[in-house]
Amino acid sequence: MPLQAFFNSFGYFAQAAGVTVAVSLAGIAIGFIIGIAVCIARVSGGRWLGGLGAVYVSVFRGVPLLVQLLFIYYFLAELGLDVPALVAAVGGLALASAAYQAEILRGALNAVPRGQEEAAIAFGFSPLDTWWRILLPQALRISVPPLINEFILLLKASSLVSVVGIAELTRVSMNVASSTYRPLEAYVGGGLFYLVINLGLAALGNLAERRLAAGSGP
């Protein structure tokens, strides 16, 4: 029967898909928090904080993710910290994703019409209220579709954490390939899991885009 190796280890694959999704979700969520901080630093951090934010984005977007992951992995070991590989994996994904998310949020902030901020000031909103009630809600709304897109990219990038030994989809595909001597079925099977998850996310992104577009019309 074709694809037997795949069906025999279906449960194993499904579990690994869960790990892939969990690692990516943790990465994007932590990355979002760091991303907001980097974005605020860049937008209103003045010369030093702003410059630091710019350097952060340049470094984490410029250095290949695999190098970043291994760097964090070895860096933690160099410090003598005995942390699980999972921490290095999630931390690496979060730090890299934060750089992209900061840029997405910055772009969204720029897309909020200037008049909104001026109107808020004219109405006597405090700076914090202007941020919290006027700028941030609109910016977040604009950034939902690109953030979902970033999530798809991160989910694919998470295949690299197999290198530090996390039993996610790619690592499990490798294991199944080497234990069954059927690499074709193992990798096609693993690839199908990625594809299904990503097509689901893409559909979600389209839905969000339509919903948000419908809401922002006159």
Binding site: K156, A157, S158, S159, L160, S162, L169, T170, S173, M174, A177, R182, P183, L184, A186, Y187, V188, G190, G191, Y194, L195, N198, L199, A202
Partner: peptide, 23 residues
């Protein structure tokens, strides 16, 4: 296009390099 963009590059490499010989 959807197939290639929906799967990780590493997975495609394994498919080509490790699973290629079986076809």
């Amino acid at each position: 296009v959807e197939l290639i963009r929906g799967t990780p590059f590493l997975m495609q490499l394994f498919l080509l390099y490790a699973a290629g010989p079986s076809i």
